[in-house]
Design a binder for these strands. Structure first.
Lengths: 219, 219
DNA sequence: CGGCATTCGTTAAACAATTAACAATTTAAT
DNA sequence: ATTAAATTGTTAATTGTTTAACGAATGCCG
């Protein structure tokens, strides 16, 4: 029985993929699933799947596999997806609007509870049933609503200031979309996900893939 | 003089950060910059900065540092940011619209040249100066326009089909936003960047950060 | 009931990335 | 000139992640 000290970041990402599959299987009425089946369905090697499950203390039966519902619940528990986490969004630009309309929040236990911007023409309007407030109100709103997470969908130039505001208001986790490394106290979690990164890495990979074509021989 | 065989993925991402800083310095008129200065400005250790530069074959002078313009050009070259790469977008939902309006394309050398969707009410309309086409036209358009990269901003259920269409049309690189591992020939590059991942990892980190508060003592 | 095939949990090895260390090089000061 | 301080390019060591391997457990079939 493996004790989960700290799970590799890559494992966490794979768990998300896996959970999606498990919920689908659950809906289809499947009771058991093997690491091989999971691997084939998600495109991950069976070995890696088992190693991941080992990290979170798996409870499968040899020859049978893992109980779908139980495993899904375990993943949700380790990833802490079930506890509700109130969140605020700062920056209602194009990306902010896309995030607001997205259905990813509830899946991970987040609830979008407030939206802030600096644009006077936006303040006071309503998006997704939430009134857009001036970012200067962030302190009071975060305290009053007990918001613990924040999304920074602002230009790079405003990212650090936004982060400072959030930290000052007591937010413990920041999802940052600006291509900037935020400077925050160590008890605040930051997850950076600049959209630009995808294109940059694509560009690099495209250039290098031509050479790798011959030598590499992936299974 | 280091020969760049293959650069770690993390290095590529840091280069993006670094390039942003370099361009800013260039605009400010700075001529030289040291690894320490870069480190302080970007939040990366100076050692790591030098190691990264080593990967791409750096050319700095001891005691002086790196020539800003030259280093920026080197990074653009290794990341292949200057060569134009025509791109198409499939899926004009909220995320697709946000991407369309974004300014990240030209920065990495990409040019959004076509938009596809399946929604009849969208086909024929114009977004960002580009006419939205039926996704069935993708083969012809990609061939005619010489498009080499594609963005899949579609639901998870449609992701693999979209990828197959792209590959069939001759696209060599896919930027995938669906939380799915795409199955493609090995000469096609895939960069996955599901928005959900950010929330998932945030959730996990938030849960674990409480414990790490005391033991860890980061500089 | 007893072997056989399958699958899990765990350990070990291989691989990759980060961090640290250090000699070589250049500027600047005396 | 010569020393001293600073910074680079590179190698070495540490750390972390992925891949492989293998005994133990379980169901299945004769």
């Amino acid at each position: 029985m493996g004790e989960h000290k700290k799970m590799p970041r890559a494992s966490v990402l794979r768990m998300e993929l896996c959970l999606e599959l498990l919920e689908q299987l659950e809906a289809d009425g499947s009771v058991y699933v093997t690491s091989r089946q999971i691997g084939e369905a998600t495109g991950v090697s069976a070995d890696k799947v088992r190693q991941d499950f080992f990290h979170l203390g798996s409870e499968g039966k040899p020859k049978v596999g893992y109980e779908v519902a139980q495993l899904a619940e375990l993943i949700r528990s380790v990833l802490d997806l079930k506890t509700a986490k109130k969140t605020c969004l700062v920056g209602l630009g194009n990306l902010g609007r896309a995030l607001t309309a997205s259905n990813i929040w509830s899946r991970a236990g987040f609830e979008l509870a407030a939206i802030f911007d600096t644009d006077p023409s936006l303040i006071g309007t309503t998006t997704a049933g939430i009134r857009v407030r001036n970012v200067t109100e962030i302190y009071g709103v975060v305290k009053a609503e007990n918001i613990i997470a924040g999304v920074a969908a602002v230009p790079a130039s405003a990212a650090q200031d936004t982060a400072d505001l959030m930290v000052g208001a007591g937010i413990r986790a920041i999802w940052n979309f600006a291509p900037v490394k935020l400077h925050v106290p160590e008890d605040v979690v930051v997850e950076s996900q600049s959209l630009a990164w995808g294109l940059i890495t694509l560009s690099y990979e495209m250039k290098n893939n031509i050479k790798d074509q011959a030598p590499e021989r992936a299974k």
